[in-house]
Amino acid sequence: MEMIGTLLPLILMFAIFYFLLIRPQQKKQKAIREMHNALQRGDKIVTIGGLHGTIDSIDENIVVILVNDNRKLTFERSAIREVVNPD
């Protein structure tokens, strides 16, 4: 009986830690992964550095972004922070 009283707070702390920290982070990573997989030509995006542009071409890991004055920049797919297409 004493063992249950000793382990219960530890189990409770782990459960709280999981639901407040680990699970939300996993959901956020999943959403980012799904967004990266759904990227397509013509999407308006923002990179992690704050650069705004439009996807000109895309392959497995590389994204070519069209920016001001028809300049093309090449980025890793993981450098895309968000898609800002008007809905």
Rank of each mutant, 00 (worst) to 15 (best):
T6E: 11
E76H: 07
D59C: 02
K30N: 12
R71M: 14
D69M: 09
G53I: 01
M1V: 12
P9E: 04
E2N: 09
V64I: 12
I4R: 02
L20P: 03
P9D: 01
F75M: 09
I4V: 08
F17D: 03
Y18I: 14
V63C: 00
L8I: 07
S78M: 04
L66A: 04
R41T: 14
T47S: 07
F17S: 12
Y18V: 15
L20E: 12
V46W: 03
K44S: 00
L8S: 11
Y18T: 15
V64Y: 10
F17C: 07
S78H: 07
R81W: 00
P24C: 03
G49S: 15
K30W: 04
L51R: 11
R23W: 14
Q25E: 12
G5K: 11
E34G: 02
T54W: 01
M1K: 07
M35S: 03
G53P: 00
L39M: 05
D59N: 11
K27S: 08
I55D: 02
T6Y: 13
R23P: 02
V84S: 03
I80L: 01
L73S: 03
V64C: 04
R23S: 13
I65F: 06
L21D: 08
R81G: 05
H36G: 02
P86V: 07
P86H: 12
E34P: 00
P9S: 07
